[in-house]
Amino acid sequence: MPRISGVDLPAEKQVKVALTHIFGIGHALAAEILKKAGVDGNARTKALTDEEVGRISSVVESGYTTEGHLKRTVSQNINRLKEIACYRGMRHRKNLPVRGQRTKTNARTRKGPRKVVAVKRSIKAMS
């Protein structure tokens, strides 16, 4: 089980798929990397020689931001927006959609599970 870009251990899958288990590498980038490294993407990961793994990992490390580094970059960008108190930053702070989506309905990904507001009882029921 080869390790590429720190902690990742792609499994018994084709190399082109296994690479997408690295945060920051999707199918397109995986294909690009394999082409640069000169490795056949259809081969199983377990069948890779150490030398091939070395080539792939050197390509990944030289040209791409992945994993922790990428996560840090993203959160830094968001924190910058929060600090300068611009509109997008405020939306991030409030955990609401940032890109102008509607919030009257939907937006549950950002807002989280529905919070039920207690129903106001009618005057008759109260008396």
Partner: peptide, 27 residues
């Protein structure tokens, strides 16, 4: 500040005030 370069002035001057949803205070 330096971080704001590239943004628009309007992004820093909010046009809406959110005062909470109706009903919440009543409950």
């Amino acid at each position: 500040t330096e971080n704001m370069v590239g943004h628009k002035l309007g992004e820093f001057s909010m046009t809406r005030i959110f005062r909470g949803h109706s009903g919440i205070k009543k409950t």
